[in-house]
Design a protein around this nucleic acid. Structure first.
Length: 213
DNA sequence: TCATTGATTTGCT
DNA sequence: GCAAATCAATGAT
């Protein structure tokens, strides 16, 4: 019998982080800034039989005036949680999978694309569909709060040294915009062949100048 | 009620 | 590299 690998995080610290997640102010900022800030944070899922924890390694911003944004035409049955308060979870289905987003403002959100498994994560959480499968997320979680719900995001305590920026994956409209953000050097990232360019971890200020909200 | 369309993943060539 | 799988949301009829 093979020894079980030691967990990368202490379950007690996970419970503490789950109890003190990022608050609404974390999400109520320009979407690109939030997409950048989410890198390195803990995504924590509470299930009846335990925790699932991953370190966020890949995000995409869906901003105002963005043709690829589901919310660009206003509220519908599918996207209505994108018009909830900052820190709302927006989960939708596309093809055969689900994708999870953190709402930042009225009709804007950050797609969670990949995490690095830290505790209790089954399978491969690289890619938004596989991330949702690994964290057992579906439309039942749409509209729940990342501040008080069964899925939360909390500070990891560690900072991300360098961020890679590139075009978003799998979209047709506004496909060229540099709104995809990746933890530099991580192997827990989808679409490894899509080109990315390296940016200082000092922040996304350069992108905020041309892409508001 | 019908046709179109995907913020994906997988498997085959 | 490319296309199929497969289905709910959406908008047109």
């Amino acid at each position: 019998m093979r020894p079980r690998p030691a967990p990368l995080v202490d379950p007690r610290s996970v419970a503490r982080a789950f109890a003190t997640p990022w608050g609404q102010a974390f999400y109520a900022r320009p979407t690109i800034e939030v997409a950048w800030a989410l890198l390195g944070q803990w995504l924590i899922r509470r299930l009846p039989d335990g925790w699932r924890v991953g370190r966020i390694t890949e995000t995409e911003a869906y901003i105002a005036g963005d043709a690829a944004n589901h919310a660009v035409l206003g509220p519908t049955l599918r996207n209505r949680s994108m018009f909830g308060p900052p820190g709302t979870l927006y989960v939708y289905r596309v093809h055969q999978v689900h994708c999870a987003n953190a709402v930042t403002g009225y009709g804007t959100a950050v797609l969670l694309r990949s995490v690095e498994p830290l505790l209790g994560v089954p399978g491969d959480p690289r890619g938004p569909g596989r991330l949702c499968r690994a964290f057992a997320l579906d439309r039942a979680h749409d509209g729940t709060s990342l501040l008080t719900g069964p899925v939360r995001i909390a500070a990891s305590g560690a900072s991300v040294a360098r961020v890679l920026v590139g075009r978003r994956i799998g979209i047709r409209l506004d496909a060229h915009r540099p709104l995809r953000f990746v933890v530099s050097g991580s192997r827990w990232v989808s679409s490894p062949r899509i080109p990315l360019r390296s940016e200082r971890a000092s922040g996304p200020a350069v992108y905020l100048s041309f892409a508001q909200s």
